[in-house]
Simulated assay, not measured.
Amino acid sequence: MRTPREVPTGGDPDLAVVAAGFADPRRIRVLMALADGRALPAGRLAAEAGVSASTISNHLSRLRDQGLVTAEQHGRHRYYRLSTPDVEGVLEALARLAPREPITSLRQHTRAHALRSGRTCYQHLAGHLGVHLFRALLDRRWVVGGNGLHHPDTDDRLSAPGHAIDYRLTPEGAGALSDWGVPQRLLRVDTTLRYCTDWTEQAHHLAGPHGSALATFLFEQGWIARGTTPRSVTITESGRPHLDRLCGSPAGMDRAGYPA
């Protein structure tokens, strides 16, 4: 089995082989369920895809053959996870290109609302929550170099890692992020920070190792928690006062973590 990173020499990449894994809506739901970095059992993935146990087995086998997921054995159960962060990158890029499905049920509305409110992206925070946290870093001058806004007239693409803006960490920001558990090796002053242009908010959120370290800290402190919708993130009752102090009010988010 070949993972997407292992491009064979001597010819062009066979994009159709990998693309076939994204061509079925049931497999897309499986990949989306795994996109927050967790490993999940087949039963949970069958529920997410809306199929039977025998059917999910066939889809998981197909995804493994295409190098999109890997399997690991824990006791009697097999758990699946994305083979590489590149798979999540493809999902984000497809979300930027794809037409929006009409929302015809309360369940669809709830899922869409949850993902826009807060979600994981490459193991850092995205959506309304991620954008507002990054805005707070800029307002406090912990990060300088830009204003957090999407600039369509530059090489600043939606739903993609950004390159147009040179965000940098200030001495105050290094001290603050150190208190928030970001490793010292990442806290050199004037370090260039990675960012993504958020596809739902069309603004920037912190990415790369700094974004991942910050998200890890917030999860470990119990200030945020994973929601019932795959990849979704909500603010906890214990975390709300801390995020209020950092951000003022978390971008008008209500008690469930949704935009008010």
Rank of each mutant, 00 (worst) to 15 (best):
A126N: 03
R140I: 03
T110G: 13
G118S: 04
A98Y: 02
Q108R: 12
Q123F: 09
H128V: 13
T120Y: 05
F134D: 00
R100P: 05
S117G: 15
A112F: 07
E101A: 13
Y122W: 10
V131H: 02
L133V: 15
L106S: 14
A114N: 13
R100N: 13
L133M: 14
G130I: 00
R107V: 11
L125R: 03
A136Y: 04
H124F: 11
R111Y: 07
V131G: 01
E101K: 05
R119L: 01
L133C: 10
C121D: 10
L97A: 15
H128G: 07
R107C: 05
L133W: 03
R135F: 04
R107D: 11
R116A: 11
A98C: 10
D139R: 12
L115T: 08
Q123L: 14
G127N: 05
R140F: 05
P99A: 11
C121P: 01
S117D: 12
H109V: 11
L138M: 05
G127L: 02
H113V: 12
L97C: 12
P99W: 05
A114V: 08
R116K: 14
L106Y: 09
R107N: 08
R100A: 15
L137T: 07
R135P: 03
L129M: 03
P99L: 08
L133Q: 06
L133E: 03
T120P: 03
A112E: 15
H132G: 07
Q123P: 02
R107A: 15
L133S: 01
D139V: 09
L129Q: 01
R111C: 10
I103S: 08
L106A: 15
G130E: 00
Q123H: 12
G130W: 00
D139Y: 06
I103C: 10
A112K: 07
A112W: 04
T104Y: 08
Y122A: 14
E101S: 12
L137E: 03
L125W: 02
Y122H: 14
I103H: 06
D139T: 12
H124E: 05
R111V: 11
R96E: 14
P99H: 06
G118F: 04
R96G: 15
L125H: 04
C121M: 09
R96H: 14
R107M: 11
R135D: 12
L137I: 07
L129P: 00
C121A: 12
Q108D: 10
T104D: 14
L125E: 00
G130P: 00
C121N: 12
S105M: 08
L115N: 09
T120Q: 06
C121R: 09
L97V: 12
G127V: 06
H132A: 14
Y122Q: 14
L125T: 05
R116Y: 10
L106R: 13
A112H: 12
H113P: 09
P102A: 13
S105C: 05
L125K: 03
F134I: 04
L125S: 03
F134T: 01
R100C: 06
P99T: 08
S105R: 07
E101I: 01
R116F: 11
G127I: 06
S105V: 07
P102Y: 06
L133H: 02
R140N: 12
A126R: 00
R107G: 06
H113G: 10
R107Y: 09
R111P: 03
R107I: 09
A114G: 10
H128S: 15
R140W: 10
G118N: 03
L133D: 02
R140D: 07
E101Y: 00
L106N: 08
L138F: 04
E101Q: 12
L133T: 04
H132V: 11
V131K: 01
H113E: 15
H109I: 07
